[in-house]
Amino acid sequence: MESNKARRNTTPIKVWVFPEEKEMIISNAKKHGLSTSSFLRQLGLNIEVRGIVDQQRILELVKINADLGRLGGLLKLWLTNDEKIKCFNKNTIDELLTKISIIQN
């Protein structure tokens, strides 16, 4: 298989589908952030379909994990009674922890 050749200059494969099937294929390709051609090619070659959507979700999880780490550091700082955060009272911290819990769920 020549990967450096432009695919448009190669032979297409026609697949006969009903209109509902076509819409479903197009929708699934969009969900994965792929073109219909790329989506069907990956399925046909038995390649796991990994679109840009999966990568975006992973990046979002990495950012959330970093945010939680920073919040944990701030909570630890508060628990050590550091002078820098004396302006925050127990109610403020309790509200923050409640919001964090809601976001995690």
Rank of each mutant, 00 (worst) to 15 (best):
Ser3Arg: 12
Ser3Leu: 11
Ala6Asn: 15
Arg7Asp: 08
Thr10Ile: 05
Thr11Trp: 05
Thr11Tyr: 06
Thr11Phe: 06
Pro12Arg: 01
Pro12Met: 00
Lys14Gln: 12
Val15Pro: 10
Val15Lys: 09
Trp16Val: 14
Trp16Phe: 13
Phe18Trp: 09
Pro19Glu: 07
Glu21Trp: 06
Lys22Trp: 03
Ile25Ser: 03
Ile25Pro: 07
Ile26Glu: 15
Ser27Gly: 07
Ala29Asn: 03
Lys31Ile: 00
Lys31Gln: 11
Lys31Thr: 06
Gly33Gln: 03
Gly33Val: 02
Ser35His: 04
Ser35Ile: 01
Thr36Arg: 12
Ser37Ala: 10
Ser38Ala: 14
Phe39Gly: 02
Leu40Phe: 03
Gln42Asp: 09
Leu45Gly: 01
Leu45Pro: 06
Asn46Leu: 06
Val49Ser: 01
Ile52His: 15
Val53Lys: 15
Gln55Ala: 14
Gln56Lys: 15
Gln56Ser: 13
Arg57Cys: 09
Arg57Tyr: 13
Ile58Glu: 15
Glu60Ala: 15
Glu60Met: 14
Glu60Val: 14
Leu61Ala: 10
Leu61Tyr: 09
Lys63Ser: 10
Ile64Arg: 09
Ile64Pro: 10
Ala66Cys: 11
Ala66Arg: 15
Asp67Tyr: 07
Asp67Gln: 14
Leu68Ala: 06
Leu71Tyr: 02
Leu74Val: 01
Leu77Gln: 10
Trp78Ser: 03
Thr80Trp: 00
Asn81Glu: 12
Lys84Asn: 11
Lys86Arg: 11
Lys86Val: 04
Lys86Ser: 07
Asn89Trp: 01
Thr92Cys: 08
Asp94Val: 01
Glu95Gly: 09
Glu95His: 12
Leu96Cys: 02
Thr98Phe: 02
Lys99Phe: 05
Lys99Glu: 07
Ile100Leu: 08
Ile100Arg: 08
Gln104Met: 11
Asn105Thr: 02
Asn105Ala: 07
